[in-house]
Design a protein around this nucleic acid. Structure first.
Lengths: 202, 202
DNA sequence: GTCTATAAGCGGATAGAC
DNA sequence: GTCTATCCGCTTATAGAC
């Protein structure tokens, strides 16, 4: 169920399974993902997977947890001091102008997994947690800005929900359409939204 | 491939198949959707479906076209004269405060189908078209407002991309999370964004 | 156009040896 | 812990009667 992350170095079998699942998912897509696909990705037999997980569903729920951790690690490092710089930093992480391979892979996989949340309650709860975490993070930054006087007296929750919805929509457009120019346009518009909403310029 | 909508009344077999697919999809979800599920939904044998469509994939592509038409019909009626009222009308259609059964069903199905666009090029093109249509519709309204002087001199494409990304993100949150309060918060924030961006108030 | 019957294969999952 | 072998149900798809 959970992947050890003791110190470093020798990956546990569970970690190797998660990595194999990641690759299989990228290669075949969620709908064509099978236990055999996963086993192929790290030279292990199908039945060994059943030693570590009770069922395919069990394995996939574990994988979603693993993928969420990756996503959160990649996104939620906020080293800046200035609230606005902090917001810009998060938006840049969520909606990079040029994404690297790792970012693209995580985005693709998350996008495929998200639709499973429509019908699978365990998945739904995990995505609820992820979006809650994002909103809370943005909200805290906005709150800090309001308190220290660098932002106007806005409703921090409302702004945070807006930012997260916009970013999620733009991320979905990246993975599910050929509208290549859209994410950049949204980035620009989001920056101007934050500037005008939080600092009253335009 | 295409569903006749000649005048009205007696549905063609293709239309009945599309309706059955709709119900089967709601009942079982995309991943557990089978030809047998669909046949069960309108009391017809599996093999008859193969008389009308060459393969399951063929049927699903046809269904996506059918579902897109439904979605567009439901969303893109813009009877208002005033540009701002027009925008509010579209946002209300896309992000209703209280959704009825039909709206919820379309939203659910579209959300499940969208993830298939990650790996299926035919699906991807259809979602590209849909988002293009949405963005174009919003952009045209903003352009009209700028031209007739009721809106400020904004970049209409940028505003349209922002609105569509935000709405799509909020719609996804409705179908894939338990964050029940999010869509309403986004609605409020979007209204205030449009007001301040297009009319310079806040 | 719709049916019954069935092919052919893949899927998840288990048994039992090592 | 990992393997080979196997079960069995369900899936897509086709053949051929009506």
């Amino acid at each position: 169920m959970n992947a050890d992350q003791s110190g470093e170095e020798p990956p546990t079998t569970e970690e190797r399974i998660m990595e194999a699942t990641f690759r299989a998912l990228l290669k075949h897509g969620y709908n064509d993902l099978s236990i055999a696909n996963i086993a192929d990705e790290f030279e292990m037999s199908k039945s060994s997977l059943y030693y570590h997980y009770d069922s395919k569903d069990d394995l996939l729920v574990a994988f979603l947890g693993f993928a969420s951790d990756r996503f959160e690690e990649a996104v939620l490092s906020t080293p800046e001091d200035d609230p606005m710089a902090n917001l810009e930093h998060i938006v840049e992480k969520l909606l990079p102008i040029q994404l690297n391979e790792e970012q693209e892979a995580i985005g693709t996989v998350m996008s495929e997994l998200r639709s499973e949340a429509v019908t699978n309650e365990a998945f739904r709860e995990q995505f609820t947690e992820m979006d809650d975490l994002l909103v809370d993070t943005v909200r805290d930054i906005v709150e800090r800005g309001v308190e220290d006087g660098s932002f106007r007296e806005v409703d921090p929750t409302r702004v945070a929900e807006h930012v997260v919805a916009t970013v999620n929509g733009a991320r979905a457009s990246r993975t599910t359409t050929n509208r290549d120019q859209a994410p950049a346009a949204v980035r620009v518009s989001l920056a101007s939204y934050l500037d005008s909403t939080l600092r009253g310029r335009q």
